[in-house]
């Protein structure tokens, strides 16, 4: 089975991906709601920018993150001065890169789910005394749970596989930013490490498959009442 170092790599991958999706979730829900329910000028541009990580080369995202969140970047320098938070060569950088790469998938899943909520139910809630925010919390959000679960699992699986943006932005530091794909890449550079590569690759396949199966199972559950289906 895996060596101690390799388990450490798996643990780091799970940790980075978990933090990434949890951090991306509130923003994803907010953006999804905005895109699903609000008309505003420049919506197409916002929609496009959110989807950029899906189509841009990840190395470009990594480079942009470096410019913005690096030690001399406009956001990175302030975060460092005010809160002492650093991203470059740090696991938080790997999590940030993974979160950005997962965001479009998460927004998409949640948006579809919010769009599937009947707006007339929201109208009914309003006439019963619920303001916009309460209507969102008590009607829209609970009815979007299947999409949110799907988004979490999808984002998690995407984060586990994140490579290009991470290695560009956070580096490939053992024990800090060296997640599964980066470790596999590193081992591939060393002759005679085929067995190690195979073990790590197998672990990648297992984790991704588990995430996808979990997403499938979770979205099929979570229905209301007998014979009900939400997705």
């Amino acid at each position: 089975m895996l060596s101690g170092d390799e388990w450490q790599i798996v643990r780091l991958s799970l940790w980075v991906s978990g933090i990434a999706v949890l951090a991306a979730l509130p923003l994803s829900v907010a953006l999804a709601w905005l895109l699903a329910r609000v008309r505003f000028p420049g919506k197409a541009i916002v929609d496009g920018v959110i989807h950029l990580p899906l189509v841009l080369p990840p190395v470009v995202i990594g480079w942009l993150l470096l410019i913005a969140f690096g030690l001399n970047g406009p956001i990175g320098s302030r975060l460092h001065d005010w809160f002492g938070v650093g991203f470059v060569f740090h696991w938080t950088g790997a999590a940030l890169a993974a979160a950005i790469m997962a965001l479009p998938l998460m927004v998409r899943a949640i948006r579809l789910s919010i769009e599937a909520v009947d707006p007339r139910l929201e109208g009914a809630a309003r006439t019963l005394g619920a303001g916009r925010w309460r209507t969102f919390r008590t009607v829209t959000l609970p009815l979007s749970v299947p999409g949110i679960v799907a988004a979490l699992v999808l984002g998690f699986a995407r984060s586990l596989g994140e490579f290009g943006a991470t290695i560009t932005f956070a580096g490939n530091i053992p024990g800090e930013t060296r997640t599964l794909p980066l470790a596999i890449y590193a081992q591939l550079q060393v002759p005679g490490m085929d067995a190690a590569v195979m073990r790590l690759a197998a672990m990648s396949v297992a984790l991704s498959l588990a995430a996808l199966v979990a997403s499938e199972v979770l979205t099929r559950r979570g229905a209301f009442g007998a014979g009900a289906h939400v997705l």
Partner: peptide, 15 residues
């Protein structure tokens, strides 16, 4: 706003 009008709305489809 609708939430402060205190009008009970009964829709055709119960909702």
């Amino acid at each position: 706003p609708p939430e402060r009008r205190r009008l009970g709305y009964v829709f055709q489809d119960a909702r």
